Computed example of a mutant assay.
Amino acid sequence: MHELGITQNIVAIVSEYAKGSKVSRVALEIGKLSAIMPEAINFCFDICTQGTLLEGATLEIIEIPGLAKCRQCGAEFTIDKPFGLCKCGSVHLDILTGEELKIKEIEVEEVCV
């Protein structure tokens, strides 16, 4: 399960950007073509955040659909696999979206003094 390593990296990156502040929410974009299972990331998140600034934080996962463009006719269409066939019969496609793994937002708690 490579999602455990990915989640550990996400926690490390968010912790670095939080600069010592408690994190209350993390939003991720995960492409449907990325071979990353959102359910596994969600499961690993609770485990990986224990004892960190992210412990108790809410994880929001935004799934990005696959979108391809045909090199032959220029048509754009959705795909659910990293390969496909255009209506014109071409298999020469450029993947436009769906391979993402991005930390979209982090929300930190601000301490008022």
Rank of each mutant, 00 (worst) to 15 (best):
S34E: 09
G31L: 12
E29S: 15
I36C: 04
R25L: 11
F77S: 10
T52D: 05
S21Q: 12
L28N: 04
E60H: 05
K69Y: 08
K19W: 10
P82F: 01
P38S: 08
I79Q: 01
I30T: 13
G56D: 09
G31Y: 14
G56H: 11
C70Y: 07
T58S: 05
I64T: 11
S34I: 05
A75S: 15
T58H: 00
F45Y: 13
Y17D: 14
A57P: 08
P38A: 05
Y17T: 12
G74I: 10
F83W: 14
F83K: 14
L54F: 07
A27I: 12
L53Y: 09
V26T: 10
E39I: 01
L33S: 14
L53A: 09
V23E: 09
T58C: 08
Q50E: 15
A35Q: 15
F43A: 00
E76R: 11
I30W: 11
A68Q: 01
C48H: 12
D46L: 04
F83T: 15
L59N: 06
A75I: 01
F77Q: 11
E29A: 13
R71N: 15
V23Y: 07
C44F: 11
F45D: 08
E39P: 00
E55R: 02
C44L: 04
T78K: 11
E63A: 04
S15D: 01
E55F: 05
D46R: 06
S15W: 00
M37P: 02
I61N: 04
G20Q: 15
I36A: 02
G84H: 11
N42V: 05
I41P: 13
A27Y: 07
A35M: 14
L59Y: 05
